[in-house]
Design a protein around this nucleic acid. Structure first.
Lengths: 197, 197
DNA sequence: CTCAAATGATACTTTAAAGTCTCACTTGAG
DNA sequence: CTCAAGTGAGACTTTAAAGTATCATTTGAG
């Protein structure tokens, strides 16, 4: 492979931490097929390695979705493209879930890419509403949250082999836009909601 | 309050670990308003405390959803009730996310409640299909995954104060059954899907 | 009030993992 | 070939947190 040692270490560290958030430097070194000493030569402390992983994830995130957000496409098409870009990021992003949530991270260099992505997703949802693509009575924060969580779920299912990588974006989008219910259920649901609210 | 010391310790330990998965026994003791020694009197090791938290989460899960699964209601009504029960569990369940995923836990006593709940959710989704409530062409594993992830997202949003606790189940259910799209978008989506697949 | 049980404070030991250092070995550019 | 740069192995020190032990204090049932 043409990966540098540093890159290999980061990749394997991500894999280790995904399995066990408390993975030791020893385990990480072994996973990366590298001596302990070499690991410390590249990252002078555990904290520095963790930071590198987080920064790496932020860069991947921006590289994946930045260009899409920058286009002038209709919101719904942007949405499809964003989802499609996001899913294959998989573990490198989900690292977020294994550390403390990136949104709580102290370091602004770690925080920024996530905040940026979130804010732009929020804007995208506002556009979806404005362009008449989603119902206007759903809270924007729920729109953002449901996209996030569905993408996360899709990645997990792709990873576990339950759904095909190419199918994933369509499942997310269809869940988000049309849901899984039939006409029959939609009627029941509306009625229930009226009764209970 | 009428909570025993043990209960208070467990509750506060959950809160600590939700913020920082590597929280020390010292931090947990302080959070519980208890001396270090007392903490170790109740749980003779960190591992034992962690186990207690996990078992506790399993019990809560079963108490919340078991009775609903046991009823003979139509699948769609069961679904609404399960979601409604699940959301308020919040942090105690999400502990799952901060430890290693419960599905990967070694101890069968930790594993069992999750496996059971998952299997019954799966059965529920099959019933939803059988009763004509959801489209039959969606993979069951995706149905289960989308419920899971939407419930998780709803809990987070309730916790952060973005959506009202009573509104949460309806948001989850409406996302799952009808999605957020308008008629306009549904047409576009179907067309896109045909083009790309 | 009295005493047993539980607690808090704190000093102590142990342990696991982080981090350092040295040295012999590989490898690839010149 | 030669040498500099990077590496692996492993012994070593340091550190932070786990876990233990002791004792004085609190508390609540009788």
């Amino acid at each position: 492979m043409n990966q540098t040692t540093q890159e290999r270490i980061i990749a394997q560290a991500i894999a280790c931490i995904a399995q066990n958030s408390g993975a030791s430097m020893d385990e990480i070194a072994k996973a990366a097929g590298v001596g302990r000493a070499t690991l410390f030569r590249h990252f002078k402390s555990r904290a520095e390695l963790m930071l590198a992983i987080k920064l790496n994830a932020g860069l991947k995130l921006q590289a994946a979705v930045g260009p899409v957000f920058d286009t002038q496409l209709p919101a719904r098409e942007k949405l499809l493209k964003v989802i499609t870009q996001l899913i294959p990021l998989g573990a490198s992003l989900n690292v977020s879930a294994y550390f403390d949530h990136p949104v709580r991270d102290q370091d602004p260099r770690v925080l920024a890419p996530y905040m940026d992505c979130m804010e732009r997703t929020r804007q995208l949802c506002l556009d979806l509403k404005a362009e008449g693509d989603v119902h206007s009575d759903i809270p924007v924060s729920w729109l953002v949250a449901s996209i996030d969580s569905l993408v996360f779920a899709a990645w997990e299912k792709v990873e576990s082999g339950d759904i095909a990588p190419k199918q994933a974006p369509w499942l997310v989008l269809s869940t988000f836009l049309t849901g899984h219910g039939t006409g029959q259920t939609a009627a029941w649901f509306t009625q229930q909601k009226d009764v209970h609210q």
